[in-house]
């Protein structure tokens, strides 16, 4: 199974391997009904941001199998592992965690063959100086996705060959998907 291979490779990659969280917190909430979620919300707000590590997820509940969070510096090595194992890049996007003053960049990978394994790589960067290395050298398709993420979130992809607005006007200086964006 490719899933196990990839999981092991990621665990080897991370410098201080976290224990695999078999039953993640978000997972438990997913099985609850909406009413219960409401009650728990107050509790969850104080939850600390997710720590780096490899997470094996239930495909039926989340839609992906492996969820990795790592430092921006480890990103290229992680993507290289996926490239070697014939993964293709589905998309790159960002999430603005304004309360934690962090921007998250999310990479989705999947496979063409029937050994289905969706991998999500997340990496967080401080909101005031968002810098993440580009993976467009490994996956040229990341070029557009990174430009789009730069458009929407202002994340700077270091080493990107052509980081100019793609979807926004050429002279755009705003990042609409930031939570503090006002048109």
């Amino acid at each position: 199974m490719i899933k196990d291979t990839i999981k092991q490779a990621f665990l080897d990659l991370l410098p201080d391997p976290e224990p695999i969280i078999e039953e993640p917190v978000v997972e438990a909430a997913a099985n609850d009904t909406a009413e219960d979620g409401k009650k728990k919300k107050a509790v969850k707000k104080e939850e600390p941001p997710r720590v780096n590590g490899v997470l094996e997820c239930d495909h039926a509940a989340h839609g992906y199998d492996i969820d990795v969070q790592l430092e921006p510096g480890e990103l290229l090595a992680a993507v290289m592992i996926l490239d070697k194992n014939d993964f293709f890049l589905e998309s790159i996007t960002g999430v603005d965690w304004i309360k934690e003053k962090q921007l998250e960049s999310v990479y989705d990978f999947s496979r063409y063959d029937f050994d289905q394994c969706r991998v999500v790589i997340r990496t967080r960067t401080p909101r005031d100086n968002p810098n993440i290395p580009t993976i467009s050298k490994i996956y040229p398709g990341a070029n557009w996705h990174e430009r789009e993420t730069h458009d929407f979130f202002g994340i700077k992809f270091e080493g990107h060959p052509h980081l100019i607005p793609l979807l926004l006007p050429e002279d755009a200086d705003f990042h609409p998907l930031l939570k503090d964006f006002k048109p």
Binding site: V26, A34, D67
Partner: peptide
Amino acid sequence: IKPPKGDYYQA
């Protein structure tokens, strides 16, 4: 419709 906290993907 209030999905619980989390990250969901559907292809």
